[in-house]
Each structure stands twice: as C-alpha cells, then as structure tokens.
Design a protein around this nucleic acid. Structure first.
Lengths: 228, 228
DNA sequence: CTTTATTTTTAGATTTGTCTAAATTTGAAT
DNA sequence: ATTCAAATTTAGACAAATCTAAAAATAAAG
C-alpha cells in the first residue's frame, strides 16, 4: 500500500496485456503472444510482477491482476488513450494510426504532463476508437448509456450525453438538435463508412458520421415492438 | 550513405552530448559527466557509435562527430526542441520545466509525428529557451540578427524579424509596432524578471517580457557613440 | 487409469548498458 | 629525459529482458 514503484516500459506493457486478457486469469502463451515475445520470457516477467504485488500468480495456473495491479494498469491505459486523443484531434492522425505511436508516448513518466495533457484535451472520456479513458483516480467512466455506434438498425433511443467535453463536439450536437433527452430511431447504417441516419418521431432525419456516433451516448428503448 | 539505422535512446543521448561538447573533440570524462555515467561506459558507447560511422574516434584522443553524426544529432535536437515548444506553448509548462520531459519525448521514433507536431506548432525556429530548432533537412536557422535578449543596455538596433511564425507572436509585435525595419534603443533590463524597456528615437517607450525579447531578432548598430 | 499432446516452467546463453578496479597512455613538471 | 598525475582504456561482473532447447506439469483421449 506504499507509493507505486516506478515500472519499466516492459513491465507496463505486460500489465496492460494482463488487464486486457485476464478474465479473470490468462495463460502464459496467450500473454506472450500479446506482448510479442515467448512463453518463457512471459513467465520470467510475471514472476517479477508477482513479487511487486501487481499480479497474482500460481505456477501452471495463469495470472490475474491484484487490486493494485488494476490501478497501475488503469494509469497506463489512461496515458495511452489520452495520447491517442491528442494524436487524432490535435495532430490530425487517423484513428487507425494512433495506436502504435501512443504505445511509445504512454511510457513517458510524468503525472504533471498527463494532468496538463488531459486539461488541454478538455478531459475526454473516450479515445478516438470510442474506448473509455480511466479517470485520474483510477475509476472508469461508466457510459450513461451505450454508444450510438453500437445501436442496431431499427432501435429507438433517447440521447443520454456526449462522450467528451470538447466545444467542437458539443456545439455540433447542439446545432443538429441531438441533445440529451431527445428521442430518435436509427434507420440506416451506411456500410461503406459507417455513417448513421437517425430520425425523430416527427420525421426529421439526420446523418451522423461514424466518428460522431461513437461520441454520442444513448439509452435504448425496450424494443421496437410496442406491446403491453 | 544508406538510410540511417535506428538508434537507441542511449545512443541518441550520447550523440547529443558529443554535439554539444565537441569543438571539435571531447574527452571521455567530460562526455561521461554529461550523460551521467562513468568514463568506462562512455568509452564502450563511443566505440559503438564509431562503428556506425557517427563519430570519429581515436584511442586516447577523444571523439568528434562525423558529417552523418551531425545530421543524426540535429534530428534528435529538432525533436527535443519541438517537444519543448509544445510543452511550453500548448500545455503551459514554464520554460524551465520543459527540458527533462522533452528529454523523454524526443526518443519517440516517428518522422510523421514530428512533421505533424512541427506543423501544429506553426514551424517554430526557436525553442522556449531561445535556442534554434534544426529544420527537417538538418540545416540550422541562422539568426537574421541576434536575439533582443542578448543585446546590452544602451545598444541601438533595427528589428530584423521574429523567431517564429505563431499568430500570437506576430500579432503582438505588430500591435506594439515592433516590426521589421523599425529602429529602437534598449534603455533598461529589469533584473528581477528580465523585462526589456526599449524606446524609439521619438521617445516612445515599450516594455517587452524576457520571453518576447527572446523571440525578436534584431540587427545591432555600430555603436552608441555618434562620431564621424 | 494410462498414454499422449499441450502448456508451462527451468536452465543456460545473449545483448545492451552499466559498474568497479586494474592496467595503459598521455602530457606536464622537474 | 624521467617521474608523476591525470585521463583513458581494458577486464570482468552484473541486471534487465530476451531467446532456444530441454524438462516438468496439466489436461485430454482412449
């Protein structure tokens, strides 16, 4: 329960992999695959992380995260996803290009840097892929609903919120009338680029890019078959 | 003359140190001091860099950079100083805080990242300390004059240009009338914070912060003693 | 309940970058 | 020209992270 010792980049990468794959435990081979190494190397590394109290490990039984391992993993993921937002929103990289770069940037050790980066980006809750960004305290944003890009065609829903607080997004959603509380139905998903067409009960339609759809949180309704 | 092989962070740090200290050669001890290591380690590293053709090394005689070493060093320094500009201008770090962080960020390997970062920052020519940023092609910005913060009290000068192209700086200089071709005399340097007071021949005075003074390039006049 | 196949772990070696301590070389002083 | 001190290099060891190849444990199949 003392201050979290500094981890090497390699240790951080293993932690992330365990976090991603352990439900609740993951084997050495799968882990080695994930971090691009061999099973024997993974065993070595895991034993070190176990000594540091970050994973719980039993020989031949796989690994899982301890509570403090979960906190450490969230910190790394937070750094990773904030850098992804920076790369996409500020430098104009495509959402598919940002992962590898963030993989390097995430290991720069400085709480103050991350605090300021977070503020500079307007404290986003989701990265360019739509994945949640852990908060500074290690908690995860629980979607006030599900993301619009995960809603099936035909589903009706109410807008619950926006995935981040940038003026650009909020202005845009306000301008097109997609504000919390409003009711819509998803009528089409364009296969080519994932554009969503939604419409109000009064018949007004609106096209939203896949990116925009990832940033809109909605509360789906019971079902489109009105019974009861 | 083939593509420059990827260097490790450590190799890059040694290269920077040789660049900074070799005029034209530097000894093992001084180099070791600079990179926070021991002379024996420096010897090892230098021999590796010599094999890669980046430094010219003769036993017991010290090291200097080869032409391709100079190019590689410029690339590292370019990355370092661009990150410094980012940290200071975008994240609001003080100019004294940016060095150590840039030291880590500079080793992220991606030409495209640096290209985009450079554009995002409006292609600055000087970092927050006033040091020149090598261009993408490895050439160095030769000051159209000297920086105003290096002018002694009493000196007259003509404004030659601005150290970078950000709208903020250019707008500001335009607004206060400090545009290329105008004539001024430096009448005071405030010891506390380095603020410069300058005045026109007609007597108008203007206070410039130390930061602003670092970003103004001037052409000093012969002398303040009017003879001939 | 054996046998076999898969997964996991150990053992020993390698690379990068470092260290201490001992051996060399250089250059300066007498 | 010797001697001496400072700078530099070698030698040998170590820690982190990895690998290959061999050994051990588990799980699956008959």
């Amino acid at each position: 329960m003392n201050a979290p010792a500094l981890l090497t980049s390699t240790e951080e990468n293993y932690l992330k992999a365990v976090f991603a794959l352990a439900q609740p435990r993951i084997g050495t081979n799968a882990l080695a695959d994930r971090v691009q190494t061999k099973a024997s190397s993974a065993t070595d590394m895991i034993q070190r992380l176990a000594e540091k109290g970050l994973v719980e490990y039993e020989r031949y039984r796989g690994v899982g995260l301890t509570p403090s391992g979960r906190v450490a993993a969230a910190a790394v993921i937070r750094r990773h996803r904030l850098w992804e937002v920076f790369l996409a929103e500020k430098l104009g990289f495509g959402w598919h290009e940002v992962h590898d770069l963030a993989e390097e940037l995430e290991h720069v050790q400085s709480p103050e840097l991350i605090r300021r980066l977070d503020a500079f980006l307007d404290t986003p809750s989701y990265d360019p892929h739509g994945d949640p960004i852990p908060r500074a305290d290690g908690t995860w944003p629980t979607a006030a609903g599900i993301r619009l890009d995960q809603v099936p065609v035909g589903q009706s829903f109410a807008v619950a919120g926006a995935a981040d607080r940038t003026d650009e997004l909020l202005d845009y959603l306000h301008r097109v009338g997609m504000v919390p509380g409003t009711e819509w139905t998803l009528s089409e998903i364009v296969p080519f680029d994932g554009t969503r067409t939604v419409q109000t009960r009064s018949g007004r339609t609106l096209d939203l890019s896949a990116l925009a759809a990832r940033h809109v949180l909605v509360q789906p309704h019971e079902s489109q078959t009105p019974n009861a």
